[in-house]
Measured scan of single mutants.
Amino acid sequence: GETKIIYHLDGQETPYLVKLPLPAERVTLADFKGVLQRPSYKFFFKSMDDDFGVVKEEISDDNAKLPCFNGRVVSWLVSA
């Protein structure tokens, strides 16, 4: 499998796309960081919350699996 991750960088209009050679349910924050090489950023991901619906959730645990929608991951990188 392959996972497409779209990421928005510090408010830039056009998002970036990276592809990881892993199925979406196995991709972790560490996998994503390894491709990006951007150490001083906070990582937020499109996520579903039972109370609020669609939210941007910050993930900082490198072992955390990334939230996935239709085989895609959507993220926002914010300068720390």
Rank of each mutant, 00 (worst) to 15 (best):
N63L: 04
D49T: 14
S60V: 12
D50R: 12
P23Q: 02
G53N: 15
N70E: 12
K65A: 10
F45R: 03
F52G: 15
T3G: 01
V74M: 10
S60T: 12
K33N: 11
P39C: 09
K56F: 12
T28E: 00
N63F: 04
L22G: 01
E25A: 09
K65V: 13
G34N: 15
D50S: 13
I6S: 07
K42P: 02
V55G: 08
T3K: 04
I5Y: 00
E57M: 15
V18M: 09
E58P: 00
G71S: 06
E13N: 09
E13P: 12
H8G: 03
G71C: 00
R26H: 10
D62L: 05
D51R: 15
K42V: 01
I6F: 12
L22I: 14
R38W: 11
S40D: 15
V54E: 14
P23K: 03
Y41L: 04
D50E: 10
K19G: 04
K33T: 04
V74A: 05
D51A: 13
P21K: 07
K46G: 09
D62R: 03
K42Q: 12
K56D: 02
E57N: 09
K65T: 13
K19M: 13
V55F: 14
K46Q: 14
V78Q: 06
I5S: 02
A80Y: 08
K56V: 14
K56R: 13
T28S: 02
Y7S: 01
S47Q: 10
E57A: 11
T28P: 05
K42A: 05
F52A: 15
Y7P: 01
H8L: 06
L9W: 02
S60N: 11
T14P: 11
K56H: 09
L66I: 07
N70H: 10
F45M: 01
L77W: 00
L9H: 00
D49I: 09
I6K: 01
S79E: 12
D50L: 07
Y7G: 01
V78L: 08
K46L: 10
F44A: 05
L36G: 00
P39W: 07
I5N: 00
E2F: 09
K42L: 01
K33L: 00
V74Q: 02
L36W: 02
V73T: 08
P39A: 10
P67N: 03
E25K: 07
T3H: 01
N70R: 09
E57Q: 15
F45D: 02
A30I: 01
T3A: 03
S40W: 11
L22P: 04
V54I: 14
E57Y: 09
K46R: 11
E2I: 11
F44L: 08
S75A: 15
G53K: 15
V27K: 07
L17C: 15
K42H: 12
G1W: 09
V54H: 12
